[in-house]
Amino acid sequence: MDLLAELGARRALCIIRAPIIPDPVGLARTLVEAGLPIVEFALTTPDAPRLIEEAARVEGLILGAGTVMSEQDARDAINAGATFLLTPGLRPAVAEEAVRQQVPIVLGAMTPTEVATAVDLGATAVKVFPAARLGPAYFSDLHGPYPDVNLVATGGLNAENAAAYLAGGAIAVTAGSGVVGPKLAAESRLAEIAQRAKEFLAAIG
């Protein structure tokens, strides 16, 4: 799986973070059918490795694990079926494990120095967080010194503002609670999630 090619083609990925996810297979299938197949299950969700293992059965799903904080987290997620990893900030041990296992990793960063460090650690792409606080122009600014770094905009994005970050130079944007709200996931309100996913994708063109 070429994560950069998928991000460039899809331009969006979905973050799932909830106190409980009773139907990970149905949720994953709903997102794939809505046109949002790149999905990250955050490890802050209880029993996340099991959820990843179950969701991995869904055809067409490009499955990742997010909020990966340690080398053991990385191993658990990969063993469960995650095909890419994301971190909220710079996590050298996670990056080392991902590179060792040849699994794409998106490292979190905010400052120009952190972006450079993420690249040095072997990041496939760099997740800039919190994007909504930094603004779309910040992505254009980062591409001044780092024209070839693939940036993913994360944090506070929704159907109203996400397109501006793509226009600013992000390779992709994240759909979080605006699409898969914790309550919607916990209650398996899949039709509503599908509608929100379609609205998000329509908004980013």
Score class of each variant (00 low, 15 high):
Asp2Ala: 12
Leu3Ser: 05
Gly8Thr: 11
Ala12Leu: 09
Leu13Asp: 01
Ile21Thr: 01
Leu31Met: 03
Ile38Gly: 00
Leu43Tyr: 04
Leu43Trp: 11
Asp47Gly: 15
Ala48Asp: 09
Glu53Met: 02
Ala56Arg: 15
Arg57Ser: 03
Arg57Leu: 00
Arg57Ala: 09
Glu59Arg: 13
Gly60Asn: 10
Ile62Ser: 09
Gly64Leu: 06
Gly64Glu: 02
Ala65Gly: 11
Val68Asn: 04
Val68Trp: 03
Asp73Leu: 07
Ala77Met: 05
Ile78Pro: 13
Ile78Asn: 03
Ile78Glu: 03
Thr83Asn: 06
Phe84Asn: 01
Leu90Thr: 05
Arg91Thr: 03
Ala95Lys: 04
Glu96Gly: 02
Glu96Val: 13
Ala98Asn: 03
Arg100Cys: 09
Gln102Phe: 00
Ile105Ser: 03
Ala109Arg: 07
Pro112Gly: 05
Pro112Trp: 10
Val115Leu: 14
Ala118His: 00
Ala118Gly: 14
Leu121Asn: 10
Gly122Leu: 00
Gly122Phe: 09
Ala131Gln: 09
Leu134Ser: 13
Ser140His: 03
His143Lys: 14
Pro145Arg: 13
Pro145Asp: 15
Pro147Asn: 09
Asp148Asn: 14
Asn158Asp: 14
Asn161Pro: 12
Asn161Arg: 11
Leu166Arg: 12
Ile171Phe: 08
Ile171Glu: 14
Gly176Thr: 11
Val179Ala: 08
Val179Met: 12
Val179Phe: 14
Val179Asn: 10
Val179Lys: 08
Val180Leu: 13
Ala185Tyr: 02
Ala186Thr: 15
Glu187Ile: 02
Ser188Glu: 15
Ser188Tyr: 13
Arg189Ser: 12
Ala191Cys: 02
Ala191Met: 07
Ile193Asp: 05
Ala197Ser: 05
Lys198Ser: 10
Lys198Pro: 09
Leu201His: 12
Leu201Phe: 07
Gly205Pro: 09
